[in-house]
């Protein structure tokens, strides 16, 4: 576990650094392979820049809007370097919305873009596992199994390692063109990736020790993953039958 890198007076959160590297590698891989989905490299670059830029600004302004009365006392903190002053959910929403507007304005195929971005997303999923390993987040449930690791006062499932292994397998399947339906259908790569990721998350969350619970001890992330899994199957079913644009 290495939560931060201390370089002189600078303290860099290791998890954020790993995610940035993952994003950079992922986008490079996606750009190199974008021609397979008839998407120009510049389009992916522009899309990533717009999504990230608006996502970051949206995350900060979402946070400011939520705690506006506190920000009124120190308005200069709107531009603070503190990453804690962000609302990630609003950021993701704004970033996604901006990407959607960009794709529609440029009259691009949304499904082809999603297919082209799938390798980047699967690399980000691997990076997320490494980020969790570095920070000690997403830790496992206590176990007596011989491969358990000592973390946070107990021998636990190495849930971060499981996460990296599952994401690596999904990455290999994604770049090798293995899809759950014919890979000629636009969207088949992305929705196969989404189905596999949701399935992996559904299974692996049962080994996590930090799960948020719904009722009767049911983990909320498993339920959310199941819904995404079912949605992916539904879209794949439509795609395999009609092979037409659905989004």
């Amino acid at each position: 576990m290495l939560p931060s890198l201390q370089i002189g007076p600078l303290s860099i959160p290791t998890d954020a650094f790993i995610l940035l590297v993952g994003l950079w590698v992922g986008l490079n891989v996606a750009e190199r392979r974008s021609h397979r989905h008839k998407v120009k490299r510049e389009v992916l670059f522009n899309l990533a820049t717009i999504t990230l830029g608006t996502g970051l600004v949206g995350a900060r302004f979402g946070y400011v809007a939520r705690y506006h009365s506190i920000f009124f006392r120190n308005p200069s903190d709107i531009f603070s370097r503190n990453l804690g002053l962000m609302d990630p959910n609003i950021g993701i929403f704004i970033g996604f919305l901006s990407a959607l507007i960009y794709v529609q304005q440029k009259k691009l195929s949304f499904l082809a873009i999603l297919d082209a971005l799938s390798p980047a997303m699967s690399i980000m999923a691997i990076a997320l596992g490494f980020a969790h390993l570095a920070s000690g987040d997403a830790y496992g449930f206590p176990t007596t199994l011989p491969w358990g690791i000592s973390l946070w006062g107990a021998i636990r499932h190495p849930s971060q390692i499981y996460e990296i292994m599952a994401a690596s397998i999904i990455f290999l399947l994604t770049i090798s063109g293995k899809t759950l339906i014919s890979s000629n259908c636009k969207g088949s790569v992305f929705f196969s990736f989404l189905a596999m990721t949701a399935f992996a998350r559904l299974i692996l969350d049962s080994f996590r020790g930090d799960s948020q619970l719904l009722i009767y001890g049911i983990r909320s992330m498993q339920v959310f993953s199941w819904v995404i899994f079912a949605f992916s199957f539904w879209v794949l079913s439509k795609l395999r039958v009609k092979n037409v644009k659905v989004l």
Partner: peptide, 12 residues
Amino acid sequence: VGGPISETLLRV
């Protein structure tokens, strides 16, 4: 982890 932490973040 790290700093400086802003007054706003502390207050929130």
